[in-house]
Amino acid sequence: MKVTLRVWRQENETAQGRFEEYEADNLNPNMSFLEMLDVVNEKLTGDGKDPIAVAHDCREGICGTCSSMINGEPHGPENGVTTCQTYMRSFNDGDVITVEPFRAEAFPVLKDLITDRKAFDKIMQAGGFITARTGSCQDANALPIGKEVADLAMDAAACVGCGACVAACKNSSAMLFVSAKAGQLNLLPQGQPEKDTRVLNMVAAMDEAGFGNCTNQYECSAACPKEISEEFISKLNRDYLIASVRSSVKAKPTTMK
């Protein structure tokens, strides 16, 4: 099969970008989208041109590195997959395919289709953890956790941190990411002691990073390669509200300000 690519090319963070067209010919429908780009890039390199910079690594949908907007949808037309799991059989012979980077002020474009998503790391550093000093932990089975809770936590934990939620959201909101990360830990008994500070700090870091606000349209869930439910956003809202009220009224030890 044959397709025409309209690809966003931008030399660096400050450069003015533009779309360029490339023909990709002799494609096998069983090629992945990234393998198709490999073929295009081999040709560009051979022709002495700069190949298209594209973020990728594991190519099996788990590392969360790949991040392209394909024909107006993060990770392309199929549901529940990443860019690397998108196959050419999802397109028709002769299609024109528009490829853009994920766009948000919090995710500046570094080159072509590669964006900088360190804002997610900052959010995690603010509270996306359970404090558990190495070596200080009780026996794993000393704390039974019901299967339903464990499974729900796993649903949230499946997040690969790709940023498709931000890319799909009309407001560039990171709520699905933050709610999945906080939700996983808030659901589990181990996560209870730090629950309030976790949500308050993670949301503060999220706002600080310049993401937009959630307007409950759930584009994030629809675009999520792991199909994480917007229910976690609801849970984050609830946890946040409770934490705000509680932290305003609760008794504090004298050692705390």
Binding site: Q138, D139, L143, G146, A150
Partner: peptide, 22 residues
């Protein structure tokens, strides 16, 4: 064995049985 303890304490959602054990 310590690794499992450590990971559970961190909130790693290992598969569990209905009774809540790993």
């Amino acid at each position: 064995a310590n690794i499992i303890d450590q990971c559970v304490a961190q909130g790693v959602p290992f598969a569990r049985e209905y009774g809540g054990l790993l």
